[in-house]
Simulated assay, not measured.
Amino acid sequence: MSITIKKYQPENATHWNAFLKKSINGTFLFDRSFMDYHSDRFDDHSLMIYEEDQLIGIVPAHTKENCFYSHRGLTYGIPVVLENKTRAVIVAVLEYLDNSAFAKAEFNLTPQHYHKDNYILSSKLVENGFKIGRILHNMSVDLKANLNISSKKSIGYRNGKFENLKIERGADFKSFWELVLVPSLRARHNSMPVHSLEEIELLASRFPNHIIQHNVYSDQELLAGITFFIKGKVIKSQYAASSPAGMKTDAVGYIYIEAMKEYKHIGYHVMDLGPVNTSDGSINEGLYRFKKQLGSEMEEVLRLEKAYK
């Protein structure tokens, strides 16, 4: 059967999104309603791979200065495929890149636990000359196993620090952004969240079942919050921050523990706590220790790239 690749066009959005729901490794991050919220910042070069007339794969991607990226506007940007079509799609995409005029191609991979076929993808890229351009050290908790939370994290249940804490789940991003997240990032790192309040509220309105805010209060005081992105059977903590008072009670740790118990009970497989790297790529030992005490394990997540000129 012949395979062809077409560049995505806006009129393909419905077809693209319908395919995403049938794929084995797609998440809502690749829905065009999510991808296109910042379409003005990227020159889209997403790909649609067909076997005869059947769409068997898609690749969220963009270009910049004659380089192909999948995808720097998203957490990652792997080929998304139908069952048993992983190898065919990867071979087709590699041939497309080999025959292109791009100076470089780059793939931001996902952690292996997102889907078993991710190993096939990374192996095929390495076999075809892709090299490691970046390594992130990602922490995750296997919710299918017994939770292995350190006594240093659960002590709040025993010493009374967690006694008066109350978690509210929903869509109150405004309180978290304005009272906790933005002040915390500004004070500790002189930075801002990747998503503005307006952007996260827009995305949550489009994906209310996939973007959930957990805020924790003591009486009426907001102490901390975590913004969770739900990706299939994986729960990803996208933002987590505490106020100074929240740090004294380990309010973020409390949210994580309660959320792990909650999502484990519902039947989710993994809680992804995100990377522990600093801006220069080294490991933030304090952050690593915090996440390790929550029972998470480290996995290397790669950005693979290849120069064509």
Score class of each variant (00 low, 15 high):
Val80Gln: 07
Gly281Leu: 13
Glu51Gly: 08
Ser205Gly: 10
Met260Phe: 00
Met260Val: 02
His214Cys: 05
Gly253Lys: 08
Ser243Ile: 02
Ser282Ile: 02
His38Cys: 09
Thr86Val: 14
Ile3Ala: 05
Leu74Thr: 03
Met260Asn: 03
Ala259Arg: 03
Glu11Gly: 00
Leu179Gln: 15
Glu83Gln: 15
Glu127Ala: 07
His113Tyr: 15
Asn146His: 11
Glu198Lys: 14
Thr27Ile: 13
Leu223Ala: 04
Glu178Arg: 07
Phe176Gln: 03
Leu202Lys: 13
His15Thr: 06
His71Asn: 14
Lys152Trp: 00
Ser242Gln: 10
Ile167Ser: 10
Tyr288Cys: 07
Gly253Arg: 07
Leu185Ala: 00
Ser150Asp: 15
Gly160Phe: 01
Tyr288Asp: 09
Ile283Ser: 11
Asp40Thr: 04
Ser237Leu: 02
Trp16Ala: 06
Met192Gln: 05
Val81Ser: 06
Glu163Tyr: 04
Lys124Gly: 00
Asp219Ala: 12
Phe42Val: 12
Phe176Arg: 04
Glu221Asn: 06
Ala105Trp: 04
Asn12Gly: 00
Leu125Trp: 09
Ile49Val: 15
Pro79Cys: 09
Lys104Cys: 11
Gly253Gln: 06
Ile3Gln: 05
Lys292Gln: 11
Tyr256Arg: 04
Tyr288Val: 03
Ile211Tyr: 03
Gln220Tyr: 03
Asn99His: 11
Ile24Lys: 09
Thr75Pro: 03
Glu201Phe: 05
Ser70Trp: 08
Lys233Tyr: 01
Glu51Val: 08
Gly160Thr: 03
Lys22Tyr: 01
Leu181Pro: 01
Leu97Glu: 10
Thr278Glu: 12
Gly232Leu: 09
Glu51Trp: 07
Ser151Arg: 15
Ile5Pro: 10
Lys131Tyr: 02
Tyr76Asn: 11
Ser150Ile: 11
Asn284Cys: 13
Ile235Val: 15
Ser282Phe: 01
Lys131Asp: 11
Val89Gln: 08
Thr75Val: 13
Asp31Trp: 01
Leu165Phe: 04
Asn99Lys: 14
Arg186Ile: 06
Ser175Ile: 06
Ala18Phe: 05
Lys292Ser: 12
Ile135Asp: 12
Lys124Phe: 11
Pro183Ser: 08
Lys291Asp: 04
Asp280Ser: 08
Lys7Gly: 10
Thr278Tyr: 00
Gly170Arg: 03
Lys131Ala: 07
Ser100Cys: 10
Ile266Glu: 09
Lys292Phe: 06
Ala241Ile: 09
Gly133Ile: 01
Gly286Phe: 00
Val89Tyr: 06
Tyr50His: 14
Asp44Asn: 14
Phe34Leu: 04
Pro60Tyr: 02
Val80Leu: 14
Met48Gly: 02
Asn146Tyr: 03
Thr27Phe: 07
Glu11Phe: 02
Val276Trp: 09
Asn148Asp: 13
Val182Thr: 13
Ser70Val: 08
Ile167Trp: 05
Asp53Leu: 10
Ile211Val: 12
Gly232Phe: 07
Lys261Met: 07
Tyr114Met: 11
Ser196Ala: 04
Gln238Cys: 00
Tyr114Phe: 15
Asn108Met: 08
Lys161Leu: 12
Lys85Ala: 06
Ser282Glu: 11
Ile3Leu: 12
Val91Pro: 01
Ile226Lys: 01
Gly73Met: 05
